[in-house]
């Protein structure tokens, strides 16, 4: 991306762009790592394959975003992925939570996948070519994650019994993290006015709800409603994270830190 573009960016727009690409990258990296933690532990071998494949997609997308940051002079993708402290991370809190049980994992992934799809759909019209091109491609790939998670939400709900109970129990903690997921950080207005994000956040939230609600209802879950919109002062988009992220980063970076200069 683009030396060419960079010359056209005002400092305020550049700051907003860097912050936003960090959000996109860190969301994908963090969830991708959580997905990988299911390897060998998922309910059956098909899910081992599915979650490994999904993890690979998410981390591949993260790399694409980190390379955009690299082009913007923000450092090497490996450093961006492994060496930044939690305070420099911009992922949503929802994605750093430990995996919990299968129902929480599925519901979290489903609500994120719909959010990611809505966000990517908007980004296909981004003023930043690298984001627009990447979004068009990633949207096609994320579609399968979402189909898979939607199938699971319906199956767990329609199975009734303990599966429905656990799915129901997952709603509250997932919903508590939604305002943070929907936050675009301190530069949201600049993102929209510059066309980097060519859609106001509120419209994205509405589109998200329209797609999530019917699936929850088909699973036998009452629609919990949208969280109240409030002002954000903390949270993932502003670098205020939970101990879960610290733990994740320690694990994820343990091999990298053995020999940061190693070539793989």
């Amino acid at each position: 991306m683009p030396a060419k573009l960079e010359q056209e960016l005002t400092p305020a727009v550049r700051t907003a762009l860097v912050d936003f690409v960090r959000q996109l990258a860190d969301d994908e990296l963090t969830l991708g790592h959580r997905d990988s933690e299911w390897l060998g532990l998922a309910p059956d071998v098909e899910e081992d394959v599915a979650f490994s494949s999904i993890a690979q997609d998410e981390i591949g997308h993260a790399v694409y975003y980190y390379e955009i940051l690299q082009d913007l002079g923000e450092g090497h993708p490996d450093e961006l992925a492994f060496d930044r402290p939690p305070s420099a991370r911009r992922n949503a809190l929802l994605l750093e939570r430990s995996n919990g049980d299968w129902a929480y994992t599925i519901l979290r992934h489903f609500v994120y996948d719909v959010w990611d799809a809505v966000r990517l759909q908007a980004l296909t019209r981004s003023s930043v070519p690298a984001l627009a091109q990447g979004a068009a491609k990633m949207l096609r790939e994320e579609r399968y994650h979402r189909m898979h998670m939607e199938m699971w939400v319906r199956s767990l709900g329609q199975a009734g019994g303990e599966a429905l109970q656990r799915l129901t129990a997952a709603v509250q903690p997932v919903w508590a993290d939604l305002p943070d997921l929907f936050d675009f950080g301190p530069h949201a207005d600049t993102l929209v006015s510059s066309g980097i994000l060519p859609e106001p956040p509120a419209a994205l939230v509405d589109a998200w709800a329209q797609q999530v609600r019917p699936v929850l209802e088909a699973a036998g879950l009452p629609w919990p409603g949208l969280p109240a919109r409030g002002a954000h002062t903390a949270g993932g988009r502003r670098g205020v994270h939970t101990p879960g992220l610290e733990e994740l980063l320690t694990t994820m970076g343990s091999v990298h830190r053995l020999d940061p200069a190693a070539r793989w």
Partner: peptide, 13 residues
């Protein structure tokens, strides 16, 4: 569809 995810990202089972 047995699994939307297969041995490589582009394949399903």
């Amino acid at each position: 569809i047995e699994n939307l995810f297969g041995p490589t990202p582009c394949r399903a089972i």
